[in-house]
């Protein structure tokens, strides 16, 4: 379900167009968070965006830094405010109404 707000860290330093947003993976039965650009799909392991997570296969599909599942799989979704708080990232993000 689409959220009435959009949580993002900042504009993407790679494509300079997309928003780096928090996406969570629940495939391993615990919350794994990462930051992904919604335009060029560059992935970082945390909102400090210092460490990039680059998939090693040739599918060119953004994947979970922990389990490797596609971040577009049903087990993954855009984080809501509660999940951002659980990850301890609330003070690193901006919230915009959509």
């Amino acid at each position: 379900m689409a959220l009435p707000y959009l949580i993002y860290v900042r504009a993407c330093p790679i494509c300079k167009e997309g928003l780096c947003r928090v996406r969570v993976c629940t495939a391993s039965h615990h919350l794994v968070g990462c930051v992904i650009c919604d335009e060029c799909e560059s992935v970082w392991t945390d909102p400090d965006m210092e460490t990039r997570s680059i998939e090693k296969d040739d599918t060119y599909t953004a994947s979970c830094p922990e389990c490797g599942l596609s971040l577009w799989d049903e087990a993954c979704h855009w984080a809501d405010i509660q999940e951002v708080c659980l990850l301890g990232w609330y003070d690193k993000v901006k919230v915009a109404r959509t």
């Binding site: 790679i14 494509c15 300079k16 167009e17 997309g18 335009e39 060029c40 799909e41 040739d58 060119y60």
Partner: peptide, 16 residues
């Protein structure tokens, strides 16, 4: 126009 690719795979493109 800006075009982002990985290898020969287009990821995204848009006017800038």
């Amino acid at each position: 126009m800006r075009v982002v690719v990985r290898g020969k795979n287009l990821i995204t493109a848009f006017p800038i």
